[in-house]
């Protein structure tokens, strides 16, 4: 079990994360928050790139800083900004990273081929990466994160740059990987995790706001989300969520605490996107 125990991270007077306590066991954990909320800070602490100002992070009761390389050999990490050596081919790059992960050379070569196949890059395995698209680079990143068959897989905005087809494939892959390991995935794209996350962790104002299953998180908006095709008719406090076109009409989804919501709109089941927009609203209610 990976435990984040009252962790605070400050930079001078700025508090990036304040008193965060979390527990990760097997499954997919989605860190869901807008940019700047502290997701990447937590991830960098989980990957020992930065260290907590206060508090501790424990793996099976041992502090990860003390575990050092013993901890790092158990993690796979895809950073938000995945840099690479432009003159390397995916195979060369993965071989280099395998050496830094301390993997056996022969085993690493076998695993590299297998992973490049998995992320559909087998046919370009020996091509220099300088001409790769963003999606291809991201797939190289996903492959390297899986190289050491990590017990803890940490992915920071992993779907950035992927096309819809790749996104679905990735989602399925992550879902299957999370069956026997801890997968921690940071995103602000709700659809990436809505159907696959076992647990959603939300931050607001650099503090932990929620840590629950998607269903339970959505439940907090139950009875407060409605749809209407006449938004102008609403004369009470509400928050507009999303819009969609249906049979030539613009259907507006809105949230309200008012009992009159049901008079104007049709009650709908809240989804994670509704909760996200509701929690991270930056405008006053109309």
């Amino acid at each position: 079990m990976l435990t984040v125990n009252h962790v605070t991270k400050t930079y001078g007077n700025f508090t990036a994360l304040e008193d965060i306590t979390l527990e990760f066991s097997q499954g997919l954990y989605a860190l869901l928050a807008p940019n700047g909320a502290g997701k990447t800070t937590l991830i960098k602490m989980l990957t020992t790139l930065i260290f907590p100002t206060r508090g501790e992070i424990l793996l099976d009761g041992d502090e990860i800083i003390a575990l050092d390389e013993t901890y790092r050999e158990k993690i796979g990490y895809l950073p938000q900004e995945f840099g690479y050596y432009k003159n390397h081919s995916p195979r060369q790059f993965l071989s280099y990273l395998a050496a830094l992960k301390g993997l056996d050379k022969r085993e690493a070569a076998r695993k590299t081929d297998e992973l490049l196949e998995l992320v559909s890059l087998a046919d370009v395995r020996d091509k220099k990466m300088r001409k790769f698209s963003g999606g291809m680079i991201q797939r190289v990143g996903i492959a390297q994160a899986l190289q050491n068959d990590p017990r803890i897989l940490i992915l920071d905005e992993p779907t950035a740059g992927l096309d819809p087809k790749e996104r679905v494939r990735f989602r399925n892959l992550i879902s299957s990987l999370s069956k026997n390991r801890i997968v921690i995935m940071s995103t602000h794209i709700v659809s990436d995790i809505e159907t696959v996350a076992n647990q959603v962790v939300m931050f607001k104002d650099h503090k932990l706001l929620a840590n629950n299953t998607p269903a339970k998180i959505c439940k907090q908006l139950e009875g407060k989300v409605f749809e209407t095709d006449d938004i102008t008719a609403i004369d009470f406090a509400h928050m507009q969520l999303t819009e969609r076109n249906e049979d030539g009409h613009t259907i507006v989804r809105f949230a309200t605490d008012s009992a009159r919501g049901a008079e104007i709109g049709r009650p709908v089941t809240p989804n994670l996107e509704d909760v996200f927009l509701y929690i991270y609203r930056d405008e006053a209610w109309i």
Partner: peptide, 11 residues
């Protein structure tokens, strides 16, 4: 821009 990746690795 490989610092985050490389320095998170075991070695």
């Amino acid at each position: 821009r490989t610092a985050a990746l490389v320095f998170s690795l075991r070695k």
